[in-house]
Design a protein around this nucleic acid. Structure first.
Length: 659
DNA sequence: TCAATCCGTATC
DNA sequence: ATACGGATTGAC
């Protein structure tokens, strides 16, 4: 251990004929390899020939452990601390930097917060290069429209705009009133930042919301002053738009979760719409959440931040309660005038017992409400929790869930007459027999949107039935008598607002064994109910005694979030505490935990078996020790990967699906 | 005595 | 990961 010296070996690449650059010949860089113990800076020599291209933030190729890998240069310095000889940078990738000082700091902060590698985060936020896109020149922007803002009814709204205009770090949880044109509100805030000479970054959950905000930004800023970043653009267009931001040609960006890292310089406003939508949670390591990325970015840059939504998450509520953010809500009178009239149907207990009949035998109130709205020439929105026809079946006699005889996957029905089909392996199971009672008949336990649409078609003959969900999502529908059946998150916007909404099968949402079931249910209901005309009826098919139902009836997302947060505090769950889920083979977990430098107040829960031969261990610390926990996990994981411990463990901080 | 193989370690 | 030095093993 004491007399180890660097291995003397011939340089992997010929250095002959290569001269280091005269000034700051050392590039300090992150190599793009996925190993935690290599997540640090390495020094390379910059050849004089690459002096101009290898700059802070540029992408290069270097020879690392014998092979060519991508790397990101963080800085150029005069000398190295490294004892051995330095290799040369092989070549530059592209001619301009991809990291800015600000995004570099953000990538590092995100890596630290979620116990991940910097390069993994960089890959989330920097699109792959497309050479041709580097040469394209953007069109000049069109005329700047008159700034028209509509903050009517939001008491703290004007002061928030004033703060953005003055470049102050105002942070707000903005609970949009139902029926409000929220894309316009976000676009106006972006315009205020723009007029203050600053940039803006808006993050939305999905492509449909992106299209709406994109259009609203065009209305607020004219053409050519913002870009929309989405996954389905194709690499060339994606990189072209991203470069326009990086070059400062365009300073306002809207996009899905990766846009949280958009290289907008001098950000004046960061915004996220509907932070409770789980699409904001990144599914790739290190699993950062877009809301929390923006919270970090706001703290790093001092830019204003707004979490806007119809509902409110416990996380947003915590930012309010600890004084980090302030509240923007509609004034009482305005809210009362714009909120729908929500009624919970009393006979839902009966419906829950026989969900197959729910759509056909609508509760009297729902039936009457639908008929009246259609008669008045308005569309009716019907929200159904599940897609498909009958996504879940059980034995008609003893209610044993129907499973595939081959792979044990859940059986579903694709139409009224067809044989049940396995949702996992797609095999048909025509002669199903109940393994417990031998019964042969199946009944629906969950009714999907397709069957609901079919039955509503029978119930309201002559009325157009439109469906939205799955891979067939409607962006909007006209203001005309129609029944619109949608799964949660796929509700089309209706021009003048729906005349009524039915939120069916609430029990299916509420009874999920998930800590966030109540919060998530209220979020989905509120987003659907926000699409009806002011004062229009909304019928929710759930027990009126349930807190989420009461919160919807009273239209009180803030009160519900406060209650939710205090429950999390009682259970000692995030966001009140910080938790890490560590998944992997049992041996790997115990290896990791025995090397873990446990932070103050660490609690371990489990491990419990998950998946095939893996286990899951939960670690919990007080919130203040969250950074210590992430750091300790990262260090332990690095130790393991350095010692070539084969089985990798997955580390997730504050994962959404706890329990 | 030399190669084939395993281990441990560093990767600028 | 992957590539290397050094130690270890096994057959001539």
């Amino acid at each position: 251990m004491t007399t180890r010296r660097p291995a003397a070996r011939p340089a992997a690449a010929p250095t002959a004929g290569r001269e280091p650059a005269e000034r700051d010949p050392v590039a300090r860089l992150h190599v793009d390899v996925p190993l935690p113990h290599l997540d640090r800076l390495f020094d390379y020599l910059v050849p004089a020939t690459l002096d101009a291209e290898v700059t802070a933030g540029s992408r290069v190729r270097v020879r690392f452990a014998g092979r060519l890998v991508d790397a990101f240069v963080l800085e150029r310095v005069a000398r190295t601390e490294h004892e051995g000889t330095l290799a040369f940078v092989e070549r530059a990738v592209g001619t301009e930097p991809v990291l800015t000082a600000e995004t570099t700091a953000l990538f590092r902060a995100v890596a630290e917060r979620w116990a991940g590698n910097v390069v993994d985060v960089v890959r989330l936020g920097v699109p792959s290069r497309h050479a041709r896109a580097e040469t394209s020149t953007p069109k000049p922007p069109g005329a700047l429209p008159e700034l028209a803002t509509d903050l009517s009814g939001y008491r703290a709204g004007p002061s928030f705009h004033a703060a953005v205009a003055e470049g102050r770090a105002a942070r707000a949880v903005w609970t949009m009133r139902p029926g409000d044109d929220w894309p316009a509100r976000l676009a106006e805030a972006a315009r205020v930042a723009h007029d203050a000479g600053r940039g803006a970054v808006l993050v939305v959950p999905d492509a449909r919301d992106l299209a709406r905000v994109d259009a609203a930004l065009t209305a607020a800023l004219g053409t050519g002053r913002h870009v929309a970043l989405s996954a389905d653009l194709g690499p060339a267009e994606r990189y072209r738009r991203w470069l326009a931001l990086r070059r400062g040609v365009v300073r306002v960006a809207v996009g899905t979760r990766a846009a949280a890292y958009a290289p907008v310089a001098d950000v004046g406003l960061l915004a996220i719409w509907d932070d409770g939508d789980d699409l904001h949670a990144e599914p790739r390591a290190p699993y950062p959440h877009a809301r929390d990325v923006l919270v970090l970015r706001s703290a790093l840059t001092g830019s204003a931040l707004v979490l806007a939504a119809h509902a409110r998450t416990a996380e947003a509520q915590q930012l309010l309660e600890n004084g980090w953010a302030h509240e923007i809500v509609a004034e009482r009178g305005v809210l009362r005038a714009s909120a729908p009239r929500v009624r919970a149907v009393a006979d839902d207990v009966e419906l829950a017992r026989d969900p197959a009949a729910a759509a056909a035998r609508l509760p009297t109130l729902a039936w009457r409400t639908t008929r009246e709205s259609l008669a008045a020439g308005h569309a009716v929105l019907v929200q159904v929790p599940r897609g498909g026809y009958v996504p879940s079946l059980a034995c008609a006699r003893d209610r044993t869930p129907a499973r595939c005889p081959v792979c044990s996957g859940p059986l579903a029905a694709a139409s009224e007459r067809s044989a049940p089909v396995c949702r996992w392996c797609a095999r048909a199971a025509p002669g199903w027999t109940c393994p417990t009672c031998g019964g042969q008949r199946l009944r629906a336990t969950v009714v999907g949107s397709a069957r609901t649409a079919e039955e509503l078609g029978r119930a309201f003959p002559g009325v157009p039935i439109r469906s939205s969900g799955g891979d067939h999502v409607l962006a909007d529908v006209g203001d005309e008598a129609a029944v619109v059946v949608a799964t949660p998150g796929a509700e089309p916007v209706c021009g003048g607002g729906y005349g009524a909404a039915l939120l069916l099968d609430g029990w299916a949402l509420l009874s999920r064994p998930d800590l966030r079931a109540g919060e998530e249910t209220l979020r989905r209901w509120a987003n659907a109910a926000a699409l009806v005309r002011p004062g229009a009826p909304v019928i929710v098919g759930a027990d009126a005694g349930v807190p989420a139902v009461q919160a919807l009836v009273r239209w009180d997302p803030g009160g519900f979030a406060a209650r939710e947060l205090s429950e999390r505090a009682e259970l000692d769950f995030p966001p009140v505490s910080r938790m890490a889920s560590v998944t992997g083979p049992a041996a790997a977990l115990s290896e990791l935990t025995s090397a873990l430098h446990a932070p103050e107040g660490l609690q371990t829960i489990g491990p419990v078996p998950v998946g095939h031969d893996g286990q899951r261990l939960l670690l919990r610390v007080p919130r203040a020790a969250g950074a210590d926990l992430a750091h300790a996990l990262k260090t332990a994981a690095a130790g393991r990967s350095a010692r070539r411990s084969a089985d990798p463990v997955r580390i997730q901080l504050d994962p959404l699906e706890l329990l």
